[in-house]
Design a protein around this nucleic acid. Structure first.
Lengths: 142, 142
DNA sequence: AAGGAACTTAGAATAGTTCTAAATCTCACT
DNA sequence: AGTGAGATTTAGAACTATTCTAAGTTCCTT
């Protein structure tokens, strides 16, 4: 089973679980996110998938991205003013935003860190998710 | 010296430091943020200041907010799709976003935590700032 | 093969923000 | 007090990102 098949099946399964159909458009949008794990905007995804399915519309790209988010296959991230970006990495991780280039990198987190961070919440605050965004520069040694 | 005077002077001083003038519009926008420490959008600030200076324009509110951000008196925050929100709390803190109500609360951080979190960055990543956003629900005991 | 729901599409509509160009204000210098 | 330069404000146009709408298409189910 190739990774592509795996992803395609994971997609079909998650969609079915929500009573939704698999479609060429949804597969294509999902694979556009998986094959380059940067954090593209809807417009960027549109540009990529159009090379493979020339008639796809931007509205469909938005629809598919929203569907993928609903199915918990993709996360929508907003860390600055401007278009929403999409991230197919579902493992807990932080984002590093390089302010010089605008590029975004995933940062793995030690398994205990999120729990420790949640400990700072006063009683009465119940966090389901924690987003961590670093902003700064990456140096040449990266 | 009242707190208002203090803030007004802090504003005048920071503006002067950047070669900018103090104006009634800038004072009013700043005080609209300080007197209610929620996290208003530009539109909400506009609604508040209009009651005191009826002729102020929305463009001016945007201009003033941007100026305050440039002078390091206010932080612009974006943690979801939608309008930018503005926060006059300059101390290091996290945000808790109540997904049921949309309300945002400041969460104080222990002084060592940000340093610890930065330790997870691999070599070559140099973070100037770290944003932490909790998402979840607040319970009645808050 | 007919009906119906899910899906896609193009284009219109909307929301939030920035831009533009003209009017106004303020200050330093006479 | 008067003037000119530059900073600031303003209304409205323009722009960007996204959502909505209504029509057309696909694909199951009977």
């Amino acid at each position: 089973m190739t990774p592509t098949t795996l992803n395609s099946e994971a997609l079909a399964q998650k969609l079915a679980h929500s009573g939704l159909r698999n479609t060429p458009q949804r597969e294509l949008v999902y694979s556009a996110l998986l094959t380059r794990r940067d954090h593209p905007t809807a417009d960027e995804v549109y540009a990529r998938v159009r090379t493979e399915l020339q008639g796809i519309s931007l509205a469909t790209v938005y629809n598919c991205l929203e569907t993928l988010v609903q199915c918990d296959l993709v996360r929508a991230v907003n860390f600055e003013r401007g278009p929403t970006r999409y991230c197919p990495n579902l493992a807990p991780h932080a984002h590093f935003h390089d302010e010089a280039t605008g590029a975004t990198f995933d940062i793995d987190l030690p398994p205990d860190l999120l729990g420790k961070i949640k400990d700072v919440l006063p009683p009465g605050y119940d966090a389901e998710a924690v987003d961590i965004i670093f902003r700064g520069k990456t140096t040449a040694t990266r």
